[in-house]
Design a protein around this nucleic acid. Structure first.
Length: 429
RNA sequence: GCCGGGGUGGGGUAGUUGGUUAUCCUACGGGACUGUGGAUCCCGCGACUCGGGUUCGAAUCUCGGCCCCGGCCCCA
């Protein structure tokens, strides 16, 4: 029998886990310096939580099942819906703005490819209530700050505001179906296709012309001015653009200037109510988006009081890829500092006692468990890149001593058992 | 769901116009070596992704499944 790992899943070994853990800790540290607190939600939820948010169609891409009493459940495909649910269940009347972050795995039934797995991890933040350009800027700043802390260099933050395009479509009296179609096409970023679609649907040619111009608006801050010319006859769009402009001022105060304004970012779903942003990294193939976020009104959809929230999430696995690409040669980390080597079987108990003393003082210690010969133990210690080996042998023990061997220099020294722990603590400082 | 490229010991590979016992490196276990590591030598362990077909004979040809890689669709 040969049991395989399910498709699209991965096993992580020691070095990789260490790497992932370090990235996780870095993000945690950054999020906490901005005052965000960690939450955790269940791995599975009521299926309806996700269909309500994204439509019935997503069941095709979700792992869902019935439990033994017939409840329709689903492995979570993302975390913003569960976080909104948690807010409604536990935190509705808490003081705003409420800041939280999360880290956990999600599941999607999709074709695996580079940077896309069936079990993947997301780590992100949510700021609920108190919607303001300041809040939105803080969220974007945190995302950028995180990448800086991780040493990721080649990334682009694209920021847009859905209100601008919405204003145009609203003024043109586009019916819902047309609206949805157009937003979906814009989201794809295919100008050709947008042209085609705009010709097919009945829409004011003037609005159509403006839309074409808008989706091509990607660049430095100057394009705000250009855009304001294009949309000057549409108060709602102007308002959204001004909001964006203000947000950029604030973002610069947060110390981040390397963003791009991108008015072509769209989201098909209509609970998005303001800014949207995406972060792209180099070298990840087709899955170059490592983070996305925005301001939305999800909580109302789930039956809570109307509160807007702003959030973002990193595709953690893609982030790990990125850090690996940007990072310098990873050094092979040793797992322990000291190896306690019994010279013969008669002293193995003594060796264990000494190892335990070390461990109680926080020294990472390995002790021979399989009765190997001294030669093999030294070999093993060498492979593990251990700094010191403690040779425990009868000859030394008679004098109440052990031999401390420095594995790099090869030098060794006889040391009183009583003082060896302190000596190791000092040596390893 | 679609297109293309793949799958040989734990890892990396040779072999693929069908033909004995499937190559080499590395890792691992043991030994040469009874209180001293990285070297050397010896021994051992261990593989043709799975199933059907063609054939006297299949790792090799063929069909299908599974899985991996890249891309499309999708991306909450």
């Amino acid at each position: 029998m040969d049991i395989q790992r399910p498709r699209g899943t991965r096993d992580f070994l020691f070095e990789e886990m260490k790497e992932r853990r370090e990235i996780e800790n870095t993000l945690r540290r950054v999020f906490e310096t901005y005052g965000y607190g960690e939450i955790k939600t269940p791995l599975f939820e009521d299926l309806a939580l996700f269909t309500k948010k994204s439509g019935e169609e997503i069941t095709g891409q979700i792992y869902h099942f019935q439990d033994k009493s017939g409840r329709e459940l689903a492995l979570r495909p993302e975390l913003t819906a569960p976080v909104s649910r948690l807010y409604i269940n536990e935190l509705q009347k808490s003081p705003k703005p409420l800041k939280m972050y999360y880290f956990g795995s999600c599941f999607r039934y999709e074709r695996p490819q580079k940077g896309r797995y069936r079990q993947f991890w997301q780590m992100g933040c949510e700021l609920i209530g108190g919607k303001s350009p300041e809040s939105e800027a803080e969220i974007i700043a945190m995302a950028a700050h995180s990448l800086e802390e991780l040493g990721v260099k080649d990334f682009e933050i694209h920021i847009g505001n859905l209100g601008i395009i919405r204003g145009i479509l609203h003024q043109a009296n586009a019916p819902k179906i047309v609206y949805d179609t157009i937003m979906a096409v814009i989201d794809k970023g295919e100008v050709e296709e947008l042209l085609k679609t705009l010709n097919e649907v009945e829409i004011d040619p003037k609005a159509s012309e403006i839309l074409i111009k808008l989706v091509g608006m990607v660049g430095q801050r100057e394009i705000i001015k250009e855009t304001s010319e294009i949309i000057k006859d549409n108060p709602k769009s102007v308002e959204a653009l001004n909001e964006l402009d203000e947000l950029l001022d604030i973002l610069e105060a947060f110390g981040f200037t390397n963003y791009k304004v991108n008015l072509g970012i769209a989201r098909g779903l209509d609970y998005y109510s303001g800014i949207v942003f995406e972060i792209y990294a180099q070298g990840l193939g087709a899955q170059k988006q490592i983070s996305g976020g925005g301001t939305y009104n999800l909580i109302e959809i789930f039956g809570g009081e109307k509160v807007e929230s702003t959030g973002f999430a990193f595709g953690f696995d893609r982030l790990v890829e990125c850090v690996r690409l940007c990072g310098e040669e990873k050094t092979h980390h040793k797992t322990v500092d000291v190896y306690v080597a019994p010279v013969s079987k008669d002293v193995k108990l003594k060796a264990i006692e000494i190892a335990q003393k070390f461990r109680k003082d926080g020294i990472k210690t390995e002790v021979d468990l399989v009765g190997r010969k001294l030669k093999k133990i030294l070999n093993q210690a060498n492979n593990l890149q251990v700094d010191y080996v403690i040779l425990v042998g009868e000859r030394d023990l008679k004098e109440g001593k052990v031999t401390v061997k420095n594995m790099e220099s090869g030098e060794q020294e006889l040391v009183e058992i009583e003082s060896v722990t302190q000596m190791m603590i000092d040596l390893l400082k």
